[in-house]
Amino acid sequence: MATVGIIDYGMGNLHSIAKALRYVASDEQIEVSFDPDTLAGMDRLVLPGVGAIGHCMEELHRLELDDMLREQIGVKPLMGVCLGIEALMTHSEESGGVDCLGAFPGNTVHFAKPEVNTDGTRRKIPHMGWNQVRQERHHPLWKDIAPESWFYFVHSYHVVPQDRQHIAGTTDYGERFASVILRDNVFAVQFHPEKSQSAGLQMLANFLEWNGNA
């Protein structure tokens, strides 16, 4: 039986992602854990999280999960969700500037100011709600997901990958930002697939089937 480890480092609500993965999983065993050895033994890993990146990196370090992740990146399929996408970049300007795991060269930045839409209405931060994702390349992770499908977002920062080849999906919120990034066997999404109804569940199912080839 294939196994999926959800990395529990105390940041936010892991119940939703566990519930959604269990809902779409057929044979896989879904485990939520903070133990580096248990997680290192899983076939695939999910790095979720909500909150601020400073506390996130401190907790990953305190629980010795950062070293485990650095070792496993490139070895087995890994999915980052929301704060997880930020943790996978080189650096974030959030929390006064924080070095992250570095799976993707590039930074995480705050949405640009002024926070006003082109029609004069106020652009609310966080970017909260349903928005569309443009698929920037063909990939098994997009299987059976319609172009421009809607996903649920909640975030104030977004990633800026240095290598445009790593961008697999983009979204408009006053500016166009990378909402899905991908390289080798690591992929990460800014939105919450576990809260994005059928499109999100399909993406989770695709991740469980993905052989980890870019």
Binding site: W130, Q132, D172, Y173
Partner: peptide, 8 residues
């Protein structure tokens, strides 16, 4: 299109 208005 951008962020959708939500019906709750």
């Amino acid at each position: 299109m951008g962020l959708a208005k939500r019906i709750i």
